[in-house]
Simulated scan of single mutants.
Amino acid sequence: MPARFIGALLLLGSVFGAQAQGDYPTKPIRFIVPYTPAGTTDILARLVGQYLGTKLGQTVVIENRPGGGNNIGTEMVVRAPADGYTMLLVNPANAINATLYPNLGFNVLNDLAPVGGIIRVPNVMTVTKNFPAKTVAEFIDYAKKNPDKVNMASSGSGTSVHLSGEIFKSMAGIQMKHIPYKGAGPATVDLIAGQVDVIFDNMPSIIAHIRSGAVRPLGVTTAQRSPTLPDVPAIAETVPGYEASAWFGIAMPKGTPPAAIARMNRELNAALADPEMKVKLANLGGVPIPGTPEEFWALHRMETDKWSKAVKESGAKAE
């Protein structure tokens, strides 16, 4: 075939390729949430997914894939086609599990492509309404007098909800029995019913129950008090040096076209800058963390190192 015809075909192909990239997305996008409905990951995915769907002109379909301490949903995305049509709601468990599960069949930092951050939030140490302790100090005293009697719920092994409690146990010198669930939703139901005693839940998924009086907050896990719950002390006011927080973002399978990631990052940052979205995130107790994919992955890498130390020092185990 003459060189001029080959050149023409290549040019035609590049034009069609550019048009295809410019048309992205052309079909619905799967947004994998590795927990049950009603937890923070689910709440954020639905909030952000609705905004993205409107701006992208395609439906963002939320798929809850709980189990395996967040690993089942995560691995689904790792193994999904890298075509720009599958996303993962990334959360602290993805950083924690790198140490907590020594035999994972994937490495999040290597096997996923970052899109961008969403928010950072405190966790809240929250007890059932009738729990005898009214403060963090009273809780520690009660736990020391009743070793292994306190049941600590979590949204699953390896979550920041779990590890926030494990670090508290270690620093306070107490024992609690860990009861892992497949998400914050069912854990909170049992907390309200008095089936478990305490949870260190992400603020977005527990705050409505705190405001309704269904449960009682004792402390926030950040070093300072949260403006969203200004009357709730920081745990560090009783346990010096205690600090933990949760963060959330989006990633896609490694190898996803850069143009797809760039479009999604642009729309995600626009969502976080939207005044209405800002109000909704603030009501959940969250601080937006917009930025580039590289900045989000730098945060993920830093948190992986931080939680690795916490897992080792607390002696936490996957259950």
Rank of each mutant, 00 (worst) to 15 (best):
L163T: 02
L100A: 08
G39W: 08
N97A: 11
K177T: 14
K145T: 03
A18T: 12
H300E: 11
A143V: 09
A113W: 00
H178P: 00
F106Y: 15
V239Q: 00
Q21K: 12
N202H: 12
Q50W: 06
I118T: 10
T40A: 10
Q58D: 00
P2R: 10
S164D: 11
G117D: 05
T36N: 09
P186T: 02
A246L: 08
A95K: 01
V161G: 13
L10K: 13
P275A: 11
K317M: 14
M302A: 15
V150D: 06
A137D: 13
G57Q: 09
S14V: 12
P204C: 12
F131C: 03
P230I: 12
A95V: 08
T26G: 07
G84D: 07
T36L: 14
G173S: 09
P28Y: 01
A8Y: 13
A310H: 12
E313R: 12
Q195C: 00
N94G: 13
A244W: 05
L284S: 03
T74N: 03
A246G: 15
A172C: 08
K55F: 05
V196K: 08
L12M: 13
E75V: 03
V15M: 14
T74R: 01
L12F: 12
V124D: 01
A137W: 04
G67R: 07
D111H: 05
L281V: 09
P132D: 06
L47K: 09
Q50Y: 06
I96Q: 03
T135F: 07
V78I: 11
A273P: 00
A260S: 12
T86A: 06
V136E: 01
I174L: 10
E75P: 00
T238W: 06
G69C: 07
S155P: 02
V15S: 06
G117Y: 04
V198Q: 02
T188A: 10
I140F: 05
V48Q: 01
T135Q: 04
K134G: 13
P2Y: 01
Y101D: 11
A271V: 06
L229I: 14
S157V: 13
V33F: 02
I29R: 04
